[in-house]
Nucleic acid binder design. Structure first.
Lengths: 204, 204
DNA sequence: TTGACATATGACAACATGTCATGTAATATC
DNA sequence: GATATTACATGACATGTTGTCATATGTCAA
């Protein structure tokens, strides 16, 4: 987390710094990124940088969270649209994410983020759809799901379902960047995989 | 890939270098690792290192592949054991992997690898179970699977099933490291998720 | 012996990071 | 208004990093 000093800064200065960090993290991955470039671009001194942030990662996650927060509400909205159809919602959400990640403005940043995806980055990306530390948020999501369609015994099963769907979705997005799949190819492949989750792979 | 010069080296020197690299990559992640430490430990000059390897990554993947190759045959063996039961095989394989990754000798290396898992590391880890570039290997695996139990229309579906199971397995292993789950907890959680894949989440 | 090639070496340039003593500005206290 | 206190800004610096390169040494064939 950035230090308090950063949050005390005037809005425009904060934005300038975030923009500079974003520019650098769009150029190269977190690990190749250079603080020198960020401070040059943001027009602040090296000392200031370390008064705002713990280190490079700290700045990176600020940018990442800034971008992710935009999508906070989105999944819920989609669930409402589909009247609680979980799989349908994941497909629509996937299409939405793919477009968001690959639009001109964002694509380089996310390419660097996804292809060097560490556990912590993945955690941050998917925090909105996880139970942990988001118990209230997660309950809000569960409420919107039409359970009657689903083959579950206890409510806890929903959590397990998300633990299958979330990494699957992530891995598809990463693959989409890695192999530079077209939007259509990527969605098609994702849908096939969801069909498996839907119907199961064993005969009954 | 390491350069030819490296492979020309006498066996004991190669091993010494791999051991030194492994030691360093067990200490810290790929990105924090220092070439200086590796060459100090392996007793070679900086110039030599760059005559053997392109860069740090190059050395890292040498170590990784060295460790992964050991498991090459394992999945096939398990498939034979279970008479082609795919899900059963994945569970047994998961137990096997978990033990392999967390044994005293390997755990630090894999912890650093998994928690900083980049796309390329994941690719390398799971290359044995992927179709791409391994068409022959993959066919050999398919042959061993008892298709009669499975709910698939065309043979291509098997590929899709793997595209669901492999990232799911990976994400469970990563989580196991991240949350320091016990062997039992991790396997239990993995099994629950596989049940979903087995039966599907929608009522029919 | 000589020449051609493969391998080894460590000094070095260029660059990075994180710290710190020292400024300067803003705010509170008397 | 004067002074103390706190918050923020700065860039030089110590220390470490990587990748390169001229040079040295070893190897093997002719």
């Amino acid at each position: 987390m950035p230090k308090q000093t950063f949050f005390n800064l005037p809005e425009d200065k904060k934005e300038k710094i975030i923009a500079a960090a974003r520019k650098e993290f769009s150029r190269v991955s977190l690990y190749e990124a250079s603080i020198s470039n960020i401070i040059k671009d943001a027009d602040i001194s090296r000392g200031s940088f370390y008064q705002y942030f713990e280190n490079k990662e700290d700045a990176f996650f600020l940018v990442l969270e800034d971008l992710i927060n935009i999508n906070e509400k989105k999944f819920k909205d989609i669930l409402k649209e589909t009247q609680g159809d979980l799989i349908k919602s994941f497909v629509i959400f996937y299409e939405y994410l793919l477009q968001f990640f690959t639009c001109e403005k964002n694509k380089n940043f996310f390419k660097n983020a996804f292809l060097n995806m560490s556990h912590r980055i993945e955690q941050t990306m998917t925090s909105g759809l996880k139970k942990k530390n988001n118990s209230e948020k997660f309950k809000g999501i569960i409420k919107l799901i039409d359970i009657s369609k689903l083959n579950i015994k206890i409510n806890e099963d929903i959590h397990t379902i998300f633990r299958v769907l979330v990494p699957l979705t992530t891995s598809n997005i990463v693959e989409s960047f890695a192999k530079q799949l077209s939007f259509e190819k990527s969605v098609e492949s994702y849908k096939k995989q969801l069909d498996i989750i839907k119907n199961g792979i064993y005969k009954n």
